[in-house]
Design a protein around this nucleic acid. Sequence first.
DNA 1: AACGCCTAATTAATCATATCTTTTAGCTGT
DNA 2: ACAGCTAAAAGATATGATTAATTAGGCGTT
Lengths: 251, 251
Amino acid sequence: MARWATVGANDRINPGLHASVLDQLGVLITSGAFPSGHVLRIEQLEDRFGVSRSVIREAIRVLESMGLLSSRRRVGLTVAPRAGWNLFDPRVIRWRLDGADRHQLLLSLGELRRGVEPVAAALAARHATPEQCGVLTGAVMQMAVHGKAGDLEAYLAADIVFHRTLLRASGNEMLGALTDVVAEVLTARTHHHLMPAHPQPEAIRRHAEVAQAVQAGDPEAAERAMRDILEETARAMLTTPPKDTTGAVED
Amino acid sequence: MARWATVGANDRINPGLHASVLDQLGVLITSGAFPSGHVLRIEQLEDRFGVSRSVIREAIRVLESMGLLSSRRRVGLTVAPRAGWNLFDPRVIRWRLDGADRHQLLLSLGELRRGVEPVAAALAARHATPEQCGVLTGAVMQMAVHGKAGDLEAYLAADIVFHRTLLRASGNEMLGALTDVVAEVLTARTHHHLMPAHPQPEAIRRHAEVAQAVQAGDPEAAERAMRDILEETARAMLTTPPKDTTGAVED
DNA sequence: AACGCCTAATTAATCATATCTTTTAGCTGT
DNA sequence: ACAGCTAAAAGATATGATTAATTAGGCGTT
């Protein structure tokens, strides 16, 4: 068997044959290379990836649980229609952010954030611990420093810390579970140059407002300030051209 | 091997041994019967469920992809800390809604909805098709009829239709992907008697307002009316006692 | 003669078992 | 006391056996 035929094309850090197969299949499906309704056979995949059935099956089970595939006897593996996909699965989000409809997805996620994060900010103003407040203001300071210096990577890191702690500080586990999603969005945005080259001081000021409102225990102010941030960035994304950088993600 | 020892304890409609094992393990983990950090061994599970390795492994892969487990060589399967769980997975939500922390989860989901649905309403006011508007107003009428008649099950169905079409009409796929979650919440709420015995006419009027605003293409009004609905229901849930009906879900 | 139902054969997923690889604990030698 | 080796333990992978479903073909009935 021509083992390792295609495996290794994308060398994942994550060990395990099945993880590799899973990633490749996930990309193939979410990218539309295998369109909805397309039928695959296990044997065929066995061939294609040069691995055994168990490996394929394990990958398939996961894809199935994400709603990307459904497996029926005597028929094969049918690619499910998009409506059934679990779009909130972090893996699905990453695959799609790496794919062609990145810009579209970022807009959708932006609208989602516009709904979720203001609420999280309001809740955080009620529930944040002093320690979390400290982390928030610290993150804002980091943003200011690295933003001025033009170090986008460090700015991004601080931005992620800010939003992560805010969502966690909401005390709501569902909102907290969105941290990874938000982090993915922020990362994708800067890595694909959908942000202004220099972060505008306006944005940093707004983040500071949120942190202050949370610390002061003022839900309304926190919610309002957070809403401003997100509307600002939404506007920025709409004005920034799509700039189709598919494939070449390099920095 | 004492096959079928525990399998069949919950008779799933969904065929496949692994699905059954998956469900049982999912419940055991989300319910806290296997606490975070607890270590399982494949062999042990093989025994317990009376199935072969492959079946266990496939279930495990899915659990792993949900962030409930992590598998390390020479160590076994470690139950992951709650922070890493993919709480948006419909299956995880269902397991937890069936479990002990149902009330807690419903509160969290309520706050999530408070963030998401008003935004969806605003977007729907921009993007809803005439047909969707028709479905919305139709659903409201159904709610009025069955609410007055006291037919909670039919009321629920109409309520689900309303929220489903609204989220879909937003034109945002991420928001649309939350329809199942919202449906689960609504269902769980009425089935566990966390709703007033007779739906208050106030709520129905608000739904009508949303439908009208969407049809009129007035985003602000739609958003405001939807926000009112959700704050109302949040208030209602806080006043309703927890009423621990774990297990006996019957109606 | 045509339509419907039943049966058998084929095919592909599902389940079980055997082998391999990696990791770590424990020991031995310097 | 520390480093390197060895062996056992447990998950990862591969292959063999089983089960279930679909389709085609034949037989019976209308």
